[in-house]
């Protein structure tokens, strides 16, 4: 896949002196779903604002579809749709007019068929003549998405799409992302919900304190950094790890269980030998469970590891 967004050595320092981005370089591939993962204040929204033209670059360059975001902003911005984090809407405007406004603003003639298609996709068609103030919070968020799609962008930025929405709407949002991806739209979402990145992203970039800590295929990332744990429950709980099992680096788990951590990448996990050594140590197995570390564990490791 070719890169559709290219961020090169981008820096951003606000007038207050706060350095939101140190030096960030990042390439976003056409058609992918990229999750920008990071704690609050990491620089996620700043990075999006710079790509979309809401904030000014302090240093570096950004190109979108091969065009520079500063010198050729008309070309870049027509390609981009942005769904902001907050519900920034004119409360007294009708849903359909709000969409028409965005489409016009982005330089496109009105297209009622397209507006109907987008509103139907977002289950907003019945509400098209409602004023935004009359809608629920979840509906308002859908309106923001509808507005961002009003000019059929090739790139969609979703800034914290799940902040403050219920589970049903979140799942709905994931479905919409999936449909848009199938249409070939490149989607960049910022989130601090790991579950979200894990569920819908193709690649994950972790950003913290204004720097990209890592960018990788989600599956690869989980394979490389994913540890697996085996929790061994014994007939007679133990209060210490037997000396003969010391080479395995076992830990004592809750309720006198033994916890064995192993690397899924290894050719040999050592499980067979461990189980036979447990038996040789005179212990009897009652149950065995395994646990794959989640993206959340990986993320916490990365961010905490940096802090230490």
């Amino acid at each position: 896949m070719a890169d559709i967004v290219s961020v090169r050595d981008v820096q951003k320092t606000y007038d207050s002196g706060f350095q939101a981005l140190k030096t960030v370089s990042l390439d976003i591939r056409e058609g992918e779903v990229l999750a920008l993962l990071g704690p609050n204040g990491a620089g996620k929204t700043t990075l999006i604002s710079l790509i979309c033209g809401i904030a000014r670059l302090t240093g570096g360059t950004i190109t979108v579809g091969g065009h520079d975001v500063v010198t050729d902003y008309r070309a870049t911005r027509r390609l981009i749709g942005l769904v902001p984090q907050e519900l920034h809407l004119d409360p007294f405007e009708k849903v359909i007019n709000a969409m028409r406004f965005t489409r016009g603003l982005f330089g496109f003639p009105q297209d009622d068929a397209l507006i109907e298609k987008v509103l139907r996709r977002l289950a907003l068609w019945e509400k098209r003549d409602s004023r935004i103030i009359e809608l629920s919070g979840g509906m308002k968020r859908r309106v923001l998405i509808a507005k961002a799609l009003a000019h059929s962008p090739r790139i969609l930025f979703l800034d914290e799409p799940s902040a403050g929405v219920d589970v049903e709407l979140r799942k709905d949002m994931w479905r919409i992302v999936d449909e848009l991806k199938k249409d070939g739209v490149t989607i960049i979402l910022t989130t601090h919900y790991i579950e979200e990145a894990e569920a819908i992203a193709d690649r994950i970039a972790v950003i913290d304190k204004g720097e990209i800590k890592l960018i990788q295929e989600k599956a690869e990332l989980m394979r490389q950094m994913g540890r697996k744990q085996m929790i061994i429950e014994l007939q007679q709980p133990v209060d210490a790890v037997p000396d003969t099992l010391a080479p395995y680096g076992l830990e004592l788990g809750e309720g006198g269980t033994l916890v064995y951590s192993y690397d899924t990448r290894g050719e040999r996990t050592g499980i067979t030998k461990l189980l036979s050594d447990i038996s040789a140590a005179g212990l009897t197995l009652r149950d065995v469970q395994t646990h794959q570390s989640s993206l959340e564990d990986i993320f916490v490791d990365l961010v905490q590891g940096d802090a230490q």
């Binding site: 033209g53 809401i54 008309r74 942005l82 409360p91």
Partner: peptide, 18 residues
């Protein structure tokens, strides 16, 4: 002032409009 106050100014700033 209204879009500045409501935050909807993001749309004007990110639009391909001079």
């Amino acid at each position: 002032f209204a879009p500045k106050y409501s935050g909807a100014i993001y749309e004007l700033l990110s639009a391909p409009a001079s």
